[in-house]
Simulated scan of single mutants.
Amino acid sequence: MAVVLGPNRYGKAETRVVRVTRDGEVHHLKDCNVGVSLSGAMEEVHRRGDNAAVLPTDSQKNTVYAFAKKHGIGEIEEFALLLARHFVGSQPTIHHARVAVEEYGWERRGPHSFARSGGEVRTCVVHHDRDGATTVVSGLRDLVLLNSTGSEFHGFAKDEYTTLPPATDRVLATAVTARWRHLLPAGEESRDYAESYRQARRCLLDAFAGTYSLSLQQTLFAMGERVLRERPEICEVRLELPNKHHFLVDLAPFGLDNDNEVYFAADRPYGLIEGTVLHDDATPAGAAWD
């Protein structure tokens, strides 16, 4: 029985880069975490330790810093595309590049003073092949949302281990991880990723706030559907919604009523709802989400 090398990739993970752009007295800040993964003609290095095809991961790290200086960091999707195209275009042994970027938010407190935002983290993943095929997936994580009413959960399946009572008025809270795949028409070289991000985020928020929820699954679909109906540049949305449970505290021992006013916010265990919402004619993205 022959033993063969299966899918593989290598790269430099979590290169932290902070780019300060000085516009006179006013400074602008970009704080990012960049991950690079490359794959291609890597048979010899795995089988024989021949490193001729391997661009060192240290070189990948240095490229991130050099590109931050030479090109600046605008929208993270554009920065990831620059890096991915560079690695594939400059190295004949590299056939595919994956570049993932997280951006951490800062709030301006003065011309050159900033406070780290407590909000969500913006994300993107770019894949680029030697044949020119490119996918761009934008997104966010840790977008914490809560509806204090307008949520129910009942009529669910039961077995001998079910103790959960039906709920007709509950707190619905989650920390959203959302990713959305862009349609990229042939020949398109640029896109307003900043506006696309702002509007996709708004759609998520509006749908969460505006959906009377009978289940978190229903809310998930409503959020993805809103993005797809309002943003024609997006063809697929993937969502992960942990159910951040809020349990009513029993105040009867203290002679107090609790009319949906005082809750215990449990951090674990939690329900995790995951789902994909897409156009019915969307082309499968394969490994683009990885």
Rank of each mutant, 00 (worst) to 15 (best):
M1H: 13
V3D: 14
L5N: 13
G6H: 07
P7F: 08
R9W: 15
G11P: 03
A13M: 15
E14K: 15
V18H: 08
V18I: 13
V18S: 13
V20I: 12
V20F: 10
T21N: 10
T21L: 11
R22E: 15
D23F: 12
D23A: 12
G24C: 04
L29T: 05
L29I: 09
C32M: 06
C32D: 09
V34M: 02
G35W: 10
V36I: 14
S39K: 09
A41F: 04
M42D: 15
E43M: 07
E43C: 08
V45R: 01
H46T: 00
H46W: 02
R47K: 11
R48P: 09
G49L: 01
V54M: 09
P56H: 11
D58C: 06
S59P: 10
A68H: 03
G72A: 05
G72M: 00
I73Y: 01
G74S: 02
E78W: 04
F79I: 03
A80P: 05
L81H: 10
L82V: 08
A84K: 00
R85Y: 01
G89D: 07
S90G: 14
H95K: 14
H96F: 09
R98A: 11
A100H: 09
V101W: 00
Y104M: 08
W106E: 04
H112T: 10
R116Y: 07
E120M: 11
R130H: 02
D131M: 04
D131L: 03
D131I: 03
A133L: 12
V136I: 06
V137C: 07
R141N: 04
R141T: 10
R141W: 00
D142M: 05
L143T: 05
L145R: 03
S148W: 09
G150H: 05
S151I: 04
E152W: 02
E152V: 08
F153I: 06
G155F: 02
D159T: 04
E160C: 13
T163W: 11
L164N: 14
P165F: 03
T168A: 13
V171T: 04
L172P: 11
A173P: 10
A173Y: 02
T174C: 08
W180K: 03
R181C: 14
E188F: 04
Y193K: 01
S196P: 12
Q199K: 14
Q199P: 08
A200V: 12
A200H: 06
R202L: 13
C203F: 02
G210K: 00
G210F: 00
T211W: 01
S213E: 05
S215Y: 01
T219C: 09
G224T: 01
R226D: 15
V227I: 11
L228Y: 01
R229Q: 13
R229P: 08
R229A: 15
E233W: 03
C235S: 15
V237L: 05
R238T: 12
R238P: 08
R238W: 11
L239G: 05
L241H: 00
V249Y: 02
L251P: 06
A252P: 08
F254L: 14
L256C: 06
N258F: 00
E261F: 03
E261K: 10
E261D: 13
V262S: 07
V262Q: 06
D267Q: 12
R268N: 12
R268E: 12
R268T: 13
R268G: 14
Y270A: 14
T276K: 02
L278K: 15
A282R: 02
G286N: 08
D290P: 10
